[in-house]
Simulated scan of single mutants.
Amino acid sequence: MKNTLSKSVLFILILAVSGCSKPVRITEGKIKRETLAFAPKVTGRVLKIYVKEGDFVKRGDTLAMLDVPEVNAKLSQAKGAVKAAGAQRDMAKHGATANQLTQLRAKKMGITEQFKFAEKSFSRAKAMFADSMMTPQAFDEALAKYNGAKAQLTAVNAEYNEAVNGIRPETRTAALGQAEQALGVLQEVEVALSERYIIATNDMQVETISLRIGELATAGFPLFNGYLPNTTYFRFTIPESKIGNFKKGENIEVNVLYNKEKLKGKIQTVKQLTRYADVTAAYPSYEIEEAVYEVKIIPDDMNAAEKLLVNATIIL
């Protein structure tokens, strides 16, 4: 009787202790992959999209084409500027043409005759003014005509000598600089025109396409988002009280909940998180004063890991 009573009391104590003990929490994590986004460098309207969500694209593939009419207009302007600057450069390089030299000679002869006439008239005017046979007003008019003819002759001689002897080196350098500047503007516009095509810079599996045909894509807006191949890893957030159980380089096994698959991997990094909001486990358990750490595990079988769903829950 006493033995039966003792066993009953012991059984009740065991149940009481079991009922008061805290449940064992399972450490949960998430399946992650490195992401990548492709964005246009110029603003334009989406004209064509060559891929679909879920497609695997390779580096160099064309993802989309934008309509950028402003760049076409700037291209025409840049081509015109290049032609004009090139003509100025060639003219400075080769100097005046034969017809231009003929025109300058005739102009020089005409102005020379005008100067000689003005010089003779001024000589007579001086003699008459000295004998008081000319008024001061008339003398001043003769002097002004003489000085004007002299200035014209000086100008046409300089123009003729420049045409015969060639353009100054400074003028040639300036014309060459203007031509190179115009060519640089043309190259810049051509680069902007090529940017209407959005080209994949890495292999990637397309996850989302943010815009559709006809919508406006602004410069820098991520139009394509996706995952880089062979970058799957397992991420756990561990409180400070339990982080001592995880060591860098340690082999570990995780269980995938949705397909009951088990995968082995190695702990690559253990680093502290800067914000508690970065915790991704469904039921995090830690004290408010505790630091929280991220444990990153690289799977041994990357091919098998690549088939798993992103953000699916895993447990240790």
Rank of each mutant, 00 (worst) to 15 (best):
K242A: 15
P299M: 03
K108N: 12
K2N: 06
S194D: 06
A87H: 11
A182N: 02
P299N: 06
E119F: 03
L316T: 09
P169V: 08
S285I: 12
A81W: 06
D90C: 01
Y276S: 11
F129N: 10
A312D: 11
R45P: 09
V57G: 04
D203F: 01
T27Q: 15
V191E: 14
T112L: 11
V279H: 03
L15A: 15
V256D: 02
N147D: 06
Q77N: 05
E113C: 01
V295P: 01
N311T: 08
Q152I: 11
L263D: 00
Q152V: 13
S194I: 01
T218I: 13
Y283I: 12
L186N: 05
N3V: 12
A163Q: 07
V164T: 07
E290W: 02
N157K: 15
P299C: 01
G249V: 02
T35R: 05
E188G: 06
A106P: 08
Y160C: 13
T43N: 04
K262T: 10
K30L: 08
T280Y: 07
A16P: 06
L316E: 13
A64R: 07
R124T: 07
A98I: 15
E207Q: 14
G226D: 03
V295C: 03
F122Y: 09
E215C: 11
T171H: 09
F115Y: 14
F236K: 05
G184A: 14
L75P: 02
A138G: 00
V82G: 10
E294P: 04
T274L: 07
I213E: 13
K32D: 08
S8F: 13
L66P: 03
G177A: 14
V191Y: 11
F11N: 08
R275L: 04
F11C: 06
G177L: 12
K107H: 09
V24I: 05
I267P: 11
A282C: 01
G148I: 14
A118I: 04
L228H: 08
L15Y: 12
I238M: 11
R168D: 12
K248C: 06
D140K: 12
I49Y: 12
E190R: 09
V310K: 14
A182C: 06
E70W: 07
Q178Y: 13
S194A: 08
A163P: 07
A64I: 00
A96Y: 03
I315D: 10
V206M: 01
V256A: 01
Y276E: 08
A151S: 07
P40C: 05
I199Y: 03
Q77M: 09
Y227E: 11
L183E: 14
K264Y: 02
G177W: 08
I297V: 14
F115V: 01
T171W: 04
I31E: 04
E180F: 07
L176E: 13
